[in-house]
C-alpha cells in the first residue's frame, strides 16, 4: 500500500486508484498504412522496465480523473506526477 498524489485531490491511498498501463503511447496517424506487425505492436506491446516507468493512473474512487505518474517499478518510489497532455519531466 502506498500513497499516490492525485494532481487534484492530493495524497490518497493506493486503493482509490486504478493503473491504466504505460503512458505516452500515441495512436498512429494513419492505421491503414501500417503492417499487421506494426499495428499489433501499437495495440499490444508494452515496455516492462525494471526501474523508472511512466504510467497512466486514474483516481477511480475519487475525482475520477486520469493523470500520469513516473514510478520506479522496483522500489515503488513515485518520482513525478503530471496531468494528462503534459510532457513528462526530463530524466534526472
Amino acid at each position: 500500500m502506498f500513497l499516490i498524489e492525485c494532481p487534484w485531490c492530493g495524497p490518497r491511498d493506493e486503493s482509490e486508484f486504478d493503473c491504466g498501463g504505460e503512458a505516452h503511447i500515441e495512436r498512429p496517424a494513419d492505421p491503414a498504412e501500417l503492417s499487421d506487425e506494426a499495428w499489433a505492436d501499437y495495440l499490444f506491446m508494452r515496455t516492462n522496465p525494471k526501474g523508472r516507468h511512466r504510467e497512466r493512473w486514474v483516481h477511480a474512487c475519487g475525482c475520477r480523473r486520469w493523470f500520469n505518474i513516473e514510478r520506479d517499478t522496483v522500489s515503488h518510489r513515485i518520482t513525478a506526477v503530471y496531468r494528462m497532455g503534459r510532457k513528462p519531466p526530463g530524466r534526472r
Binding site: 482509490e16 474512487c61 475525482c63
Partner: peptide
C-alpha cells in the same frame, strides 16, 4: 468533502 470508499462502498 471528498469522494472515497467507506467499507469498500463508493
Amino acid at each position: 468533502c471528498a469522494q472515497s470508499t467507506l467499507a469498500k462502498a463508493l
